[in-house]
Simulated assay, not measured.
Amino acid sequence: MAIKERKEREKQDMRNLIIESATQLFLKHGYDKTSIRNIADDIEYSPATIYLYFKDKDEIFYVIHENAFELLNKELRKNEAIENAFDRLGGIGRTYMKFALENPDYYDLMFIMRAPLSQIKSEQKWEAGECAFGYVTETIGACLEQKLIKPADKFLLAMSVWSFVHGLVSLYVRERMCVFPLSDDLLRDMLYSSLENYLSILKT
C-alpha cells in the first residue's frame, strides 16, 4: 500500500509540475507560442513524459482554466453570508473585480487569451465556469423574487451584469484606460464607482 501511495503521489507531483510550468509559459509567451516541447524543456523531461499525463496542450490549458475558475468561484462564494440578495450581488461584483485586479495575468488567461477550448466543447461541460456564472444568476434570481431590482429576464440580466464588470476590468487589465489622465489608484476607484453606479440603475 505504501508503494502504491508513493507512486500516486509522485504521479500527482509530476502533473502539478507540468501544470505550473505550462501556466508560466502560457502567461509569458501566450498559448500559440508555447509547445509541449517548450514545457518539457522547462521541466527538463522529454515530451514523451508529458504525454503520459496529458493527451495534448489543449488538455493542459483546460486543467489550468478549470483551476483558475475554481479559485474565482471560491472567492465569489465568500459573499454567501450576505443575506440581502442585492447587497450580495454588489459583493459578488466587487469580489470579481478584486480577483481580476489582483490576478491580472490569470484573468487574462481565463477570459482574454485566445486559445482553443476543444476539451470543454467535446465533453460539453465547464464545471467551474458554469458554477461561477450560476451563482451570479442564482443571486439575480433572488433579487428579482424579492423585487429588489427592476423586472427583467434573469439570464439576460446575468449576462448584462457579467459583461459590464468584465468589460471594465478587461479595459484595465489590458491597459486601455490610459486615456484617462488618472493615477492607478484613482483608476481602480473609478472601476468600483462605475460598478456601484451600474447596480444603482438596476435597483427598484
Rank of each mutant, 00 (worst) to 15 (best):
G129K: 01
A132V: 10
G141R: 05
P151R: 11
I140S: 00
L187G: 05
P181C: 08
R174Y: 13
V169D: 00
A142G: 05
R188Y: 02
C131D: 14
S170L: 03
L157V: 12
M177E: 07
V161S: 01
L182V: 09
V136H: 02
C143M: 07
V136P: 00
A152R: 13
Q146H: 08
K147M: 08
D153P: 06
T139R: 02
D185C: 06
W162A: 06
P151D: 14
R188N: 03
Y172H: 14
C178M: 10
V136E: 01
V169F: 02
G141Y: 05
E145K: 13
G141L: 06
M177T: 10
G141F: 02
F180C: 07
P181E: 12
L144D: 08
V179G: 06
K154R: 15
Y135F: 15
F164Y: 14
F155D: 15
G167S: 11
T139W: 03
L171M: 13
Y135Q: 04
Q146L: 06
V136G: 00
V161D: 01
C131E: 14
R188C: 02
T139Q: 07
L186Y: 10
A142Q: 13
E138N: 05
T137S: 14
A142R: 11
R188V: 09
S160A: 13
G129H: 04
R188W: 01
L187H: 09
S183T: 15
M177I: 10
F180W: 11
F133A: 03
K147P: 02
T137K: 12
V165S: 00
V173S: 00
L144E: 07
C131Q: 14
C178P: 00
F180D: 05
D153N: 14
G167N: 12
A158Q: 02
F164M: 13
S170C: 11
D185N: 10
L156R: 11
Y135R: 03
W162H: 10
P151C: 13
P151A: 12
D185Y: 06
E175T: 04
K150H: 08
Q146N: 13
S160L: 10
L182I: 07
V169P: 00
V169L: 01
E145M: 08
A158F: 03
C143P: 04
E145I: 11
P151S: 12
A152T: 07
V165G: 00
E138W: 04
Y135T: 03
A152S: 14
L182H: 09
L168Q: 06
F133S: 01
F164R: 10
A158R: 00
H166I: 02
F155N: 15
V161H: 02
E138G: 01
F180A: 12
W162Q: 06
E175Q: 12
D185Q: 11
I140E: 00
F180Q: 11
K150N: 10
A158D: 03
A158E: 01
L144R: 05
A132G: 05
A142L: 10
D184T: 11
Q146M: 07
V173C: 03
W162N: 11
T139P: 02
G129S: 09
L148S: 14
S183H: 10
C143A: 07
